[in-house]
Computed example of a mutant assay.
Amino acid sequence: MPTDRKDESQDPKSFILAVPSKGRLEEKSAEIFSKAGLPLLRDGARGYQGEMAGNGSVKVEYVSAGDTAARLAEGSAHMGITGEDLLREEIADFDSAIHLVSPLGFGQADVVVAIPDGWVDVTTMNDLADVAAEFRARHGRRLRVATKYTHLTTDFFARHGADDCELVQSFGATEGAPSSGAAEAIVDITSTGATLAANNLRIPNDGIILKSEAQLAASLKANWSDKARAAAKFILTRLEAYQIAKKQIKVCLRSTPNMGAANMRPPEIEQLQSNYGAKLVDISTGATDQGSSYTFILPVNQQAAFMDDMIGNQLFAIGEVSKPDFLYFQRCEMLERLLGRLV
């Protein structure tokens, strides 16, 4: 007898991962998991079920972005990928229900307040609050703000004292509301601002409500059995190793016997870590006629300065740089943060 999805998620043998079912978000989700050594195997090009290679306890379900938020909110999925804007808008008890595991580097967009270009005296949210108060006094009604993001907008406007604004639910092209007369201002999501500009709208200086992107999020309401926690460890150790490696390089430096590097002491290494964020991961001291080698991991953007210092100042004779695909460390911070939220 088949079970419903709620019962399925409570099965200690199951770990439910909800991913986008179509479009760019689906493609980018599949790509990042594949690069992290966690390829997703979908049951057909349009199937709604799948699995994760290498771990039979992970069940992949392909759902819409909005459904992912709902699944995480109710605890019928352990983890899922969707935009942070949807999570914060649609989950009323966000702080107690959701843990943001990791931003994924795609799906970037901002939830913003947008006002007509003609409002030349309105540059901040305080200005907008003043205009709304004057509008209400003059017209006997509140200034209308069209949006799909009613919860985010309500909280943001309340923080800025814009109490004389009325939210109007938008079901279509929100950016067209001011020109059509349906509202005086809007709150919408934008990635480039081009659509706002095309509709003669602009963002106040402090009008960004949320800088959103695709997030790997975990439900704090799911059944986190030992098996589910083991699946989370399987996923997060690999994902973190991949994400760390994207931002780091490995540098192997070799010295000759007459170079100072052969006698490098801990204080000098600590200084390197302070200057360049370099982490010493290996020391090899050769025979007296061969010198020594030191292997460091450091941020990609520090490579040039680090090598100039090490080679240019003749501390080392040879420097080899490589780009690791994965960097594993004893502690997985993603996993530790998640486990710290689970009770």
Rank of each mutant, 00 (worst) to 15 (best):
Y276L: 03
A231P: 05
M307T: 00
S225D: 04
N263L: 06
T285L: 14
I311Y: 00
A245R: 10
L216W: 00
D206N: 15
S212T: 06
E213V: 04
G260C: 06
Q314C: 04
I249L: 15
S219Y: 02
Q271F: 02
L210E: 01
C252W: 02
K221F: 02
I297C: 06
L210K: 03
A245Q: 13
P299C: 10
G260H: 07
I244C: 09
L210C: 09
E270Q: 13
F296L: 12
I235C: 05
Q302G: 03
M310G: 10
M310F: 00
G277C: 11
D289A: 12
A218L: 02
R238Q: 14
N223S: 12
Q271K: 13
I249P: 03
A217S: 13
L216A: 03
D325S: 13
I208C: 10
D309M: 08
N313Q: 15
S322D: 14
F329Y: 11
P324N: 13
L210Q: 11
G312E: 11
Q215K: 07
A245T: 12
F234D: 14
G286S: 01
M310C: 12
F329V: 10
K227M: 10
T237Y: 02
L210H: 06
G286F: 00
G286K: 09
Y328M: 15
F326P: 05
I318L: 10
G260P: 04
M259P: 03
A231T: 05
Q314N: 15
G312Y: 01
I235Q: 01
Q314T: 14
R229T: 09
Q273F: 00
